[in-house]
Simulated assay, not measured.
Amino acid sequence: MRLVADAYRIADDVLFSGAAEVDRTGAIPATHWSAIAEAGLFGIAAPADAGGPDLDFAQVIEISEVMASGCLATAFTWQQHHGVVISLATTANNRLREGLFAATASGALRAGVAYAGVVPTPPRMRATRLDGGWRFDGHAPFVSGWGIVDLLQISARDADTDDVLAAILPIEQPPDAITVTPLHLGVADATRTVSLAVTGLVVPDDRIVSRVTLDDFFATQNTGVRINGTLPLGLVRRCAALLDVGGHPRAARALRDRGSTIRTALDAGLTDAATLIAARADGAQLAVDAAATLIAADGGKALLRGAHPERLAREAAFTLVAASRPQLKELLVDRFSARPGARTP
Rank of each mutant, 00 (worst) to 15 (best):
residue 260 S to L: 03
residue 254 A to H: 02
residue 259 G to P: 01
residue 246 G to F: 12
residue 249 P to E: 12
residue 271 T to V: 10
residue 230 T to L: 05
residue 263 R to M: 04
residue 251 A to K: 05
residue 244 D to Q: 15
residue 247 G to E: 13
residue 244 D to Y: 15
residue 255 L to S: 01
residue 243 L to W: 12
residue 239 C to K: 02
residue 248 H to D: 07
residue 270 L to D: 06
residue 252 A to E: 05
residue 259 G to Y: 01
residue 248 H to S: 12
residue 259 G to F: 00
residue 253 R to A: 08
residue 240 A to Y: 13
residue 261 T to S: 07
residue 270 L to W: 08
residue 250 R to I: 14
residue 237 R to Q: 04
residue 266 L to T: 06
residue 243 L to S: 13
residue 268 A to H: 15
residue 235 L to C: 03
residue 265 A to C: 09
residue 239 C to Y: 01
residue 271 T to K: 09
residue 251 A to Y: 01
residue 228 N to C: 07
residue 239 C to L: 02
residue 233 L to T: 11
residue 264 T to C: 02
residue 241 A to L: 08
residue 244 D to S: 13
residue 256 R to I: 02
residue 269 G to F: 13
residue 268 A to M: 15
residue 251 A to M: 02
residue 229 G to E: 05
residue 254 A to W: 01
residue 260 S to I: 03
residue 242 L to K: 07
residue 271 T to E: 08
residue 252 A to I: 12
residue 231 L to F: 10
residue 264 T to W: 05
residue 264 T to Q: 09
residue 264 T to P: 00
residue 264 T to S: 00
residue 263 R to C: 04
residue 246 G to P: 09
residue 255 L to P: 00
residue 271 T to S: 13
residue 252 A to Y: 06
residue 246 G to H: 11
residue 264 T to L: 09
residue 239 C to S: 04
